[in-house]
Design a protein around this nucleic acid. Structure first.
Length: 270
DNA sequence: CGCTGACCCTGACGGC
DNA sequence: TGCCGTCAGGGTCAGC
């Protein structure tokens, strides 16, 4: 479900409600997520005051003075602010209750999400070898081109690789390649520097616009404040198999790459 | 090191 | 209506 824009939308939705609030109780109803949730999470959060909610890649970092809870939403996860005593549904695995009377609720039907505690989250095993943020200064065309030397993997799988750049998920990878006019099947090592410049700009553009729109709501995504995103209205190719390309009218093609579906225009993307 | 495919899990949806 | 196959926005890991 959530790609970078959806995680960022969630972060912005929840932060105002929990920063400076103190944790009065932590309820973990099901510890069997992507990895078992350690009791150190509960222990460290209890009694602490939240100092910030940050994001690195698709991880939410819920910080206290001593460290951070590292929350990943996986494919189907979402976070909400609820009144503390709101009855929990079957997939509401974690509640973090606050002295404000509210709680941060984590729901995740498929349980591909995860929750860890770390004193120094950016050094955590899951985060330490991640590539740059796509909206940051150190990401651009020359960086991508450099990293792509000798790589035979498809350009689409290359930009979805979090070691290369974080936060480019399956929807926005197809969208960015369309906007840059690059065939998603092309080998990463055979894309010119000039086209990488265009691609890095497309990635920045599409992610920034999606954040502005509050994310993409395909099935069930809602930001932390319960609002649906509306970026899906701006999707050019994702989910549009056989529908006309908005530029040239030829039908959008769907293929599978690395077990994920890819959408593109055979006419416009070479 | 780079790359591929299996796998984790539940729910929604379309076809019959 | 019900059953069954397919698919889903994530990522890690083993094996070549």
């Amino acid at each position: 479900m959530p790609e970078l824009p959806e995680v960022e939308t969630s972060r912005r939705g929840i932060a105002p409600h929990i920063v400076n609030a103190t944790v009065t109780r932590v309820i973990v109803r099901n510890r069997q997520l992507r990895w078992p949730v350690s009791k150190s999470v509960d222990r460290n959060l209890l009694g602490a005051s939240i100092t910030a909610v940050d994001r690195r890649a698709k991880y939410l970092l819920i910080r206290t003075g001593d460290g951070a809870a590292i929350l990943h939403l996986g494919m189907s996860g979402s976070v909400y602010i609820v009144d503390r005593d709101t009855p929990a549904g079957v997939h509401d695995h974690v509640d973090i209750q606050f002295d404000t009377g509210k709680a941060l609720r984590f729901r995740d039907p498929r349980r591909f999400g995860s929750l860890h505690w770390s004193k120094s989250p950016l050094d955590h095993k899951l985060l330490k070898s991640l590539g740059p943020e796509p909206l940051g200064e150190d990401f651009g065309g020359s960086y991508l081109w450099e990293r792509a030397r000798g790589r035979r993997v498809s350009i689409k799988q290359f930009i979805m690789n979090a070691q290369v750049v974080v936060g480019v998920g399956n929807i926005y990878a197809s969208e960015a390649l369309y906007l840059a006019g690059i065939n998603p099947r092309r080998a990463a090592g055979r894309v010119s520097l000039q086209r990488y410049e265009r691609l890095s700009n497309s990635i920045k553009d599409v992610l920034a616009k999606a954040i502005k729109a509050g994310g993409t709501t395909l099935r069930d995504f809602y930001g932390g404040d319960g609002e649906a995103g509306y970026f899906q209205q701006q999707l050019e190719v994702y989910g549009r198999e056989n529908q006309p390309c908005r530029f040239c009218n030829s039908p959008i093609t769907a293929i599978v790459q690395g077990q994920r579906s890819t959408y593109y225009c055979k006419q416009c993307q070479t």
